[in-house]
Amino acid sequence: MRAVYRNPGELATCLKDLVDTYLEGLISYEKFESKVVKIINANEDSVYKGGHMPVKLANTLESSRVEIINKIFEDMQQA
């Protein structure tokens, strides 16, 4: 898995696949969370601009996946 994505489509696909892998029970929450945190940190403005996920990315991920990623992002902000 790469950490930095220049293409927003590839970033969305990576996050979508990662969330789906977690939801299918193939990886633990801790491992999933650490991977999402790495992607968010490496792609800063591509994942969250001003604390909000860009509409194009959110539309690709769909609301259920966005909620899961937003929870991890909120936990990052509190830590």
Rank of each mutant, 00 (worst) to 15 (best):
A79Q: 15
G51C: 08
T13Y: 04
E67D: 15
K16M: 03
D75P: 00
F73N: 12
A58V: 10
M53K: 03
K31I: 10
I72W: 11
S63G: 01
A12Q: 05
D75A: 15
R6C: 06
E67F: 13
D75I: 05
L18A: 00
E67M: 15
P54M: 08
R6E: 13
N7I: 06
N70F: 02
G50W: 09
K38E: 13
A42H: 00
L26A: 14
L57A: 03
R65D: 11
D17S: 06
V37Y: 03
N59L: 12
Q77T: 11
C14N: 06
Q78C: 08
K38V: 07
P54Q: 03
V55M: 13
T21H: 08
E44N: 15
S64P: 00
H52N: 14
K38G: 06
T60V: 10
R65K: 13
R6A: 13
E33L: 07
T13A: 01
V36C: 01
E30F: 07
P54I: 04
R65A: 06
V19C: 05
A12T: 03
F73A: 13
Q77N: 12
Q78V: 13
M76C: 04
R6L: 14
K16I: 00
Y5V: 03
V66F: 05
L61V: 04
K31C: 11
R2G: 09
N59D: 12
R2E: 14
P54L: 02
R6T: 09
K49T: 09
T60G: 04
G50C: 08
V4M: 14
L18D: 05
L26R: 15
N41K: 13
G50E: 02
A3R: 15
V66I: 10
E67A: 15
G50H: 10
Y22D: 02
V55G: 04
G9L: 07
D45I: 09
K35M: 04
P8V: 09
I69S: 11
E74D: 14
M76D: 04
E24F: 07
Y22K: 05
S28I: 01
L57V: 02
N41M: 10
T13G: 07
P54T: 08
L23D: 14
H52C: 04
A79T: 11
E44T: 15
L15M: 12
M53V: 03
S28D: 14
S63D: 14
P54W: 04
V36I: 14
N59H: 12
C14G: 01
A42W: 05
D20I: 06
D20P: 06
E44Y: 11
F32H: 01
A42D: 06
L23I: 11
N7F: 11
